[in-house]
């Protein structure tokens, strides 16, 4: 997969930690204002719905969940079943994509995820939205203030109520 967004807006079978393109360098973070200048109105609205919220995302095979919290400033955190109990920082960028429907890229530092190289994952917003199983405003699990959760994220999670139960918050 190319690291360029324009080549990643097609529907891919898997995304995020499960559909990766590896890049050699960790790119500079884009500020929200810079991104907003480039994004069309539709994409801007779709992206806004993904920020400052905790999203439960699962890939198309429906096996590998991850929780994401994206800040408007282009940073965020991810708690993935691929990484057990680790919560890792991520940088994100958005673009209009070739089809004008938008694309989202997440970039992980290799050192944070046990890889020699950094990891850049991009998908069209249609794919991203179709993978969102549940969402809640804000950061109810304090993902932004920890580096490890008290438990590993299981491979099967269907909604955030299960996370509540897992963390003893129900």
């Amino acid at each position: 997969m190319s690291s360029k967004v324009k080549n990643t807006t097609e529907k891919t079978p898997l995304r995020r930690l499960c559909a990766a393109a590896v890049v050699a360098v960790f790119p500079l973070l884009f500020t929200a204002s810079v991104q907003a200048q480039d994004l069309n109105e539709q994409v801007t609205r779709r992206i806004e719905k993904m920020t400052e919220r905790t999203l439960l995302f699962r890939n198309d095979s429906d096996r590998i969940p991850q929780l994401e919290y994206l800040r408007p400033d282009g940073t965020g955190v991810v708690w993935s079943a691929a990484l057990g109990d680790k919560v890792v920082p991520v940088a994100w960028t958005a673009s209009n994509g070739d089809d004008g429907k938008g694309a989202l890229c997440l970039v992980f530092k290799g050192a944070d995820i046990g890889m020699a190289r950094d990891l850049r994952l991009c998908d069209g917003l249609d794919v991203v939205e179709s993978g969102i199983r549940d969402a809640r405003d804000g950061d109810p699990y304090d993902l932004t203030s920890v580096t490890r959760m008290k438990v590993a994220l299981p491979q099967i999670v269907n909604d955030l109520a299960e996370i509540d139960q897992l963390l003893g918050r129900d």
Binding site: C18, A19, L83
Partner: peptide, 14 residues
């Protein structure tokens, strides 16, 4: 084998 799948997918990008 089942448990390794997520991490392997991540590391392979598949």
């Amino acid at each position: 084998g089942r448990a390794l799948e997520p991490m392997v997918r991540m590391m392979l990008g598949v």
